[in-house]
Design a protein around this nucleic acid. Structure first.
Length: 320
DNA sequence: GCCGTTTTCGGCCCGACTGTTTTCAGTCG
């Protein structure tokens, strides 16, 4: 072995392993009911580790991990503990307190940490199989805040999960596979007379090589008509949610799809917001906040005066 | 748990939709 690999310490965890580890920790802490901002701090470094171009483990060993924005003493210590010992004591404590399968409940759309915790505390449901049993026996309805509809939604979510192995609804697809489908939807939307502007946004517009779903944004004075026309498209397998300005659906190719509609004057605000990424929006809004501005998908607001400025183009948003 | 152009403490982006409630919690993006 004369390659560079010969000089590297062996058995160092990959960035993906570290990201998965901290995601698991974040999920456990969410179920444990810890501060939402603590969870966000962990999820932030998950995203950071996933895209970092060089070895995070090596960086930690060199003592340079805290140069990364969002990594403080606590996270550096945990990375070092795992890199040097192969273990994470906090995670071990949490997995003694909660069953592993509890995390898989959150694979089901509609079930988050609060619901997973409630199912464990009140019904001793520890994984998806036990949840299915409880549904079949009608045991869910007795739980606080859970009625017939919620039970029905959970049964349906389990069926989808069983039909599409390995969290398929959360899986990412190649850009080249998804882009033509998204372009087709955009073309349809633009063909509607009531539509002033339409684009796909999200990770697709950011040209990420792997994307999870299709985000569609529309500027129109008549959202109801857009919604009516779109909901009838034969490409949609099911409509998951439908309100006045937002619709969520699943396509026959198994892709999630979100449609959002605003007044044409605020189209730039919507396009900016849903092009994301989430981390970019958090940073941008924090930046704006320090300058007395509040950014949403509808406008840029001057907090002191309450003046709300809508932007028809994305460039105007950044101009402000 | 992280961070700082007023800060080492007290904030941390913002809103739509659903289901369960009689005004809101949870989830999602």
């Amino acid at each position: 072995m004369t390659s560079r690999q010969a000089h590297r310490p062996r058995h160092l965890p990959s960035n993906t392993e570290l990201a998965d580890l901290f995601q698991k920790l974040a999920d456990y802490l969410a179920i444990d009911g810890q501060s939402a901002y603590r969870i966000i701090a962990y999820e932030k470094v998950v995203g950071l580790f996933r895209v970092h171009p060089t070895s995070v483990a090596e960086m930690a060993l060199r003592g340079g991990l805290r140069d990364l924005p969002g990594v403080g003493q606590a996270i550096e210590t945990k990375v070092l503990e795992f890199v040097t010992t192969g273990r994470l004591s906090q995670l071990e404590k949490l997995s003694e307190r909660y069953p592993d399968g509890l995390l898989t409940l959150m694979y089901l759309p509609g079930i988050g940490p609060k619901t997973a915790r409630k199912l464990w505390d009140l019904a001793h449901i520890a994984d998806i199989y036990m949840l299915k049993q409880a549904c079949a026996e009608g045991r869910l309805r007795g739980l606080p805040g859970m009625g017939e509809k919620t039970e029905g939604n959970i049964i349906r979510a389990i069926q989808v999960w069983e039909a599409r192995p390995v969290e398929a609804t959360r899986a990412r697809r190649l850009l080249a596979e998804v882009e033509p489908q998204a372009a087709h939807f955009v073309e349809f939307l633009r063909s509607l007379p009531v539509v002033v502007a339409a684009d796909y946004a999200g990770s697709l517009r950011r040209r990420r090589s792997l994307v999870r779903d299709i985000d569609l944004v529309v500027g129109s004075h008549d959202p109801a008509s857009v919604m009516d026309a779109f909901a009838l498209l034969p490409e949609l397998e099911s409509i998951e949610e439908r309100g006045d300005t937002k619709l969520s659906a699943i396509t026959h190719t198994g892709l999630g799809l979100d449609l959002r509609i605003v007044e044409p004057a605020a189209y730039g605000n919507l396009l900016q917001h849903f092009t994301g990424s989430a981390a970019h929006n958090v940073a941008l809004r924090g930046y704006a906040q320090k300058r007395g501005l509040k950014i949403s998908e509808y406008n840029v607001e001057e907090v002191k005066t309450g003046t709300r400025i809508t932007c028809a183009s994305e460039a105007e948003v950044y101009g402000r």
